[in-house]
Structures are given as C-alpha cells and as structure tokens.
C-alpha cells in the first residue's frame, strides 16, 4: 500500500492550482501530513478528508464560494481559496468551510528546488549558446547543399553537354578555304586565311566601321577565323567568298561582310558573332564550345 503511494507521479507542473501547488489527482494537499500511529486507520492522502481535519480550531476563516465551475477542471485561474482541487468537486455550488491552518508548505506551497540549481551557470550558458550556434551552422550548411543541388538540376544535363562541344580537324582545311560545320544547330564558318587576307583585314580603318572591331579582337590566331554563320540582320546564312569586300554576302537583304566577318554594307547592324573556341592537341584540332 505504501509502495504504491510513493510511485504516484505528480502531473506535469504546467497544470498547477491557483495556489501554485502542482495538481495531482486524488492527492489531498491540504491535509496535514501527520504521522499516524495513534489509532485511526485513514492515511494522510485520501479523497475524503476525515472529520478531524475540518475541526474548527485556532483562527478560522469561512469562505463562501458561489460560482459554478465554467471551465473544464479548474474553474478559475486565480483563486483566493487555498483549497486543493480534491475538494472542489464536493464544494461545487455550495459553501465550504475550510481551515487555513492546515497548510503545510507555507503560503505558496511550492517545494524548494534550490538543490537542483546549477552551481556554475557560466558553462551552462556557453553550452547552450554553442548548441544553438551548432544548430544554426548545421542547418545553414544543409540548406546550402539543398539549394545548390536543386539549382544544379536546372543546369544542362550530361547528354546535352556531351553534344555542346564539337571537335574539328584543322589539317583538312587548306589555306584560303572555308569549312562549315554544324554546332548547336547553327552553322559555324571556319576559314583558313591566307597572309594576304590577314593583311587586308588589318588594313581597314576601324573608325570607319559600323561596328568597330579590330581583326585582332576577332581571332585567336590570325590564320584561323571562326565565327557563327548567322547574319546579324535577320538570321540568314551568308554565302562565303562573295560580296563587295571579299568576305561573306547575305543573299536575303544584301549585307556585305569583309574577310574578318565585319559588316561593311547593308542592313545588318553588327559583325558576325564569334563563338567560344580553343585550339587543342598542338593546334591540330579546334574545339568549339
């Protein structure tokens, strides 16, 4: 019997009485925890208070409780009564007589928690800040990986990238000849220029051009001119080795490009575009893209 009593757990302390005493069902806190052994059989914690507990002795206060309970278990958040809830059931709607002298815990009835307090709060504080910071750091790095993974989904897939670059054998193009290759669905002009053509391209006065660009800006090696074969006017494909300037001629609306692919006459506003390219394997191959 006494064993089972010691195992009664107090409910979560958020559920407290108005007096601050933790609410434990069927525990009568207002009874004096007197040691018995003087004859009577009732233990200190029973639901029905024995009659001697209600004995009028010493200073007596009589409380009149008239309100009906209007919430679930505890009718009021604050109460001037220090009665425990164990009695409230029987007190509903009636008048209860209560002896205030039977309090055992002082005015609030809260147990003393001093032994549980940390002796050194400094290390506790450091630990708490550390844990909060660690949560932030881990979360930030996880969020960063998530975001970068999601973004990498939007990048071009491997099979697209595999087709995005092409290699061209340069040895197959004799001097003074054009080669047209297809790259990402567009034609690319590759011209192996003669030294005369290079001189011609350099001789032009840049200031007179519609889209001023020197020949050096347009080639990585002067003998190789690589450019997108799309007219900058309306997207036709110009014809090679044609036009008034010895370069390219767009048959659609009559734009003339020179031997460096610069616009000289006609409606086109810009020079022919230069794609990204590189010479690989000791200049034997051209890598476009």
């Amino acid at each position: 019997m006494s064993l089972s009593i010691t195992r009664i757990n107090v409910l979560p302390s958020t559920r407290t009485l108005a007096s601050g005493v933790p609410f434990a069902n069927k525990i009568n806190h207002s009874l004096p925890p007197q040691a018995h052994g003087h004859g009577h059989s009732a233990g200190p914690r029973t639901d029905s208070p024995p009659t001697w507990a209600q004995k009028l002795s010493g200073s007596v206060s009589v409380l009149h409780v008239n309100t009906l309970p209007n919430t679930l278990v505890f009718s009021r958040s604050f109460s001037t009564s220090s009665r425990s809830s164990a009695q409230s059931g029987s007190a509903v709607g009636g008048i209860s007589h209560h002896a205030t002298t039977s309090q055992r815990h002082g005015p609030t009835g809260v147990p003393d928690f001093t032994p549980y307090r940390a002796s050194d709060t400094s290390s506790n504080r450091t630990l708490s800040y550390f844990m909060v910071g660690a949560l932030g750091a881990l979360g930030a790095s996880a969020a960063k990986s998530t975001v970068s993974d999601v973004l990498s989904n939007m990048a071009a897939s491997a099979d697209v990238l595999a087709l995005a670059k092409i290699e061209v054998e340069l040895g197959a193009i004799p001097e003074g000849k054009n080669l047209i290759v297809k790259w990402r669905g567009k034609p690319v002009f590759i011209r192996h220029r003669t030294s005369d053509e290079i001189d011609e391209a350099n001789a032009v006065d840049v200031k007179t051009l519609r889209d001023p660009q020197t020949d050096d800006d347009r080639v990585k090696k002067p003998e190789w001119l690589v450019m997108l074969g799309v007219c900058t006017h309306l997207g036709c494909v110009p014809i090679g080795e044609a036009g008034d300037y010895g370069g390219w001629f767009c048959p659609c609306h009559g734009s003339h490009y020179d031997i460096s692919g610069r616009i000289r006459r006609g409606p086109a506003p810009l020079n022919l575009e230069i794609p990204e390219y590189d010479f690989v394997e000791d200049d034997a191959k051209l890598l476009i893209g």
Partner: peptide, 17 residues
C-alpha cells in the same frame, strides 16, 4: 503513473462539466 493519472482525470472532466 502519468498515463494512469491522466486517464483517471478523464472521467473527472466530464463529471465536472
């Protein structure tokens, strides 16, 4: 013990209401 005390609090709830 917690569960038990909660379960026994349930009938009280309806009782009081």
């Amino acid at each position: 013990p917690r569960l038990a005390s909660r379960a026994s609090a349930l009938p009280r709830l309806s009782q009081v209401r």
